[in-house]
């Protein structure tokens, strides 16, 4: 194809997206569109399955049977969501194994928030309330993104996630209505998870490299800073209901803007964690790689079994 032809196709392609048409797997697409989607979608999938680890850490220690089944179901949903997203990414011509390879070698990223440790039960509440809260803000607009399989996967994910944040908030509420010790546990969790949750919505617009292109392809509908503001504005009143204090002295309602002003985010910490030096980066990768390697003989055996069965069938037929 000549450059001229490609340019023409690209223009038609962008026009389709601008008309709100969906792009489907077999449609022609610019290579950059394919690569960007593979990157973002696989990163999203990785975040789901790495995200299973910090919460999975508390399954055996959940304080009641009711909490235990809710947590199990939630972490299981995350596995499901990872699976939907990997499957959707596979339509772009990359296998799940290749994506795992990228994760395990550190080539692919996942959400930094999961590199923080879950050290008390209240962290289950804080993650559900804050981390899922921030994730929902990011995810809901993606239900309408331009790539069909991604949009469909996200519709499923969002539908199922609706219980996750409620699950977390309920844990917090119970702690805040409990003994002083429980309330303290809740406040401590908020103190530790608040800033990482704000960072989770991505670097400031000035530092964000992919935003403009992503907006055009509807991989993003709002800028990181707008999303962050939205998250803060909706979360502060929830903290009030809990009777908890947001750990930010500069947090103040701004009548003029109709929004909360907030303090400086420690971006050095953010980049440190992104670059692999957060408190749990090594542990998380070790757990993922370990599970994959320990499972290898199992996966091989299951394939070998089917092949043998097939062979036997064919022999019988002869």
């Amino acid at each position: 194809m000549s450059d001229e032809q490609i340019k023409n196709l690209e223009e038609q392609f962008e026009a389709r997206i601008a008309r709100d048409e969906k792009i489907e797997p077999k449609d022609w697409m610019p290579e950059k569109y394919r690569q960007t989607h593979i990157r973002q979608m696989s990163q999203h999938a990785h975040s789901e399955i790495v995200g299973m680890l910090p919460e999975g850490n508390w399954i055996t220690r959940a304080p009641s049977l009711r909490r235990k089944v809710a947590l199990l179901a939630k972490v299981q949903d995350e596995a499901g969501h990872g699976l939907y997203l990997y499957s959707a990414t596979e339509t772009l011509g990359i296998s799940r194994d290749e994506m795992y390879e990228q994760l395990h070698t550190g080539k692919a990223k996942y959400s930094s928030i999961f590199n923080y440790p879950t050290i008390t039960w209240a962290d289950m509440g804080a993650i559900g309330w804050l981390v899922d809260g921030a994730a929902i803000i990011n995810q809901v607009p993606l239900c309408n993104t331009s790539y069909g399989p991604y949009a469909r996967a996200m519709i499923r994910v969002c539908k199922e996630e609706s219980f996750h944040q409620r699950q977390g908030f309920e844990i917090m509420l119970k702690l805040c209505n409990g003994t002083p010790e429980q309330k303290e546990m809740a406040q401590d969790a908020l103190n530790r998870w608040w800033w990482p949750s704000l960072m989770m919505l991505g670097p400031t617009d000035a530092e964000s490299i992919h935003t403009e292109q992503s907006m055009k392809w509807k991989l993003k509908r709002k800028s990181n800073d707008d999303l962050r503001q939205q998250f803060i504005d909706q979360t502060v009143p929830q903290a009030d209901i809990l009777g908890l204090t947001i750990p930010d002295q500069d947090l103040k309602w701004n009548e003029e803007r109709g929004s909360y002003d907030f303090g400086e985010i420690d971006w050095d910490e953010f980049w440190q964690v992104v670059k692999g030096h957060g408190p749990m980066n090594r542990e998380r990768m070790k757990a993922r790689v370990g599970a994959w390697e320990r499972g290898e003989w199992v996966r091989d055996a299951a394939m070998a079994y089917v092949e043998k069965k097939q062979e036997r069938k064919e022999k019988q037929a002869v």
């Binding site: 499957s87 596979e90 799940r96 469909r152 499923r156 091989d300």
Partner: peptide, 25 residues
Amino acid sequence: STKNWPLWEIFVRSKNGLEHRHCGS
């Protein structure tokens, strides 16, 4: 691993009277 597990497309009928619909893989 020598071979990856193959990919399957899944169709689910949500209730009798409705068609099977593709829901993922």
